[in-house]
Amino acid sequence: MDTMTLHRMEYYGYHGVFEEERKLGQRYYVDLQLELDLQKAGLTDDLEQTVNYAEAHVLVKNIVEKKSFKLIEALAEHIASAVLDTYTVINAVTVKVTKPHPPFDVHFQGVTVELRRSRK
Rank of each mutant, 00 (worst) to 15 (best):
H57D: 09
D45I: 09
H57F: 15
K23Y: 06
R119W: 09
S118L: 13
L115S: 12
M1Y: 09
L43N: 11
R116G: 03
E55C: 02
Y28D: 02
V89F: 05
K66S: 11
I63E: 10
R22F: 14
L115M: 15
E55Y: 07
V89Q: 15
Y87N: 03
A54F: 14
D31T: 15
K96T: 13
Q33W: 00
L36V: 09
R8Q: 06
V113W: 08
T94H: 00
K66G: 01
V93L: 04
A82V: 05
Y11A: 03
L75R: 01
V97C: 03
E73K: 08
Q109K: 05
N62T: 05
S81N: 09
A76Q: 01
K99G: 02
L32I: 07
D105T: 05
V106A: 14
Y11F: 15
G16K: 07
T50N: 09
V95D: 00
V97I: 05
L47A: 11
A56N: 04
A41D: 06
G25H: 10
Y12M: 06
T112F: 09
A74L: 04
T86Q: 09
N62R: 07
Q33L: 10
A56R: 03
A92N: 02
Q49H: 13
V83Q: 00
Y29R: 04
H15T: 01
E10W: 03
V17I: 15
A74D: 04
P102R: 08
Y28A: 04
R119Y: 13
G42N: 14
V17Y: 15
Y28K: 04
H107N: 09
N62A: 04
V30I: 11
Y29S: 01
V58H: 05
K23G: 01
M4R: 03
V64A: 09
V30E: 03
H107K: 11
Y12C: 11
Q26W: 02
N62L: 02
V113G: 05
Q26K: 11
V17N: 11
P100V: 10
P103K: 06
Q26T: 04
D85R: 05
L38T: 12
L34Q: 10
K67H: 07
T86L: 04
G16M: 10
P102F: 04
D2N: 10
K61D: 04
H7Q: 07
R8K: 10
M4A: 14
N62M: 06
Y28P: 07
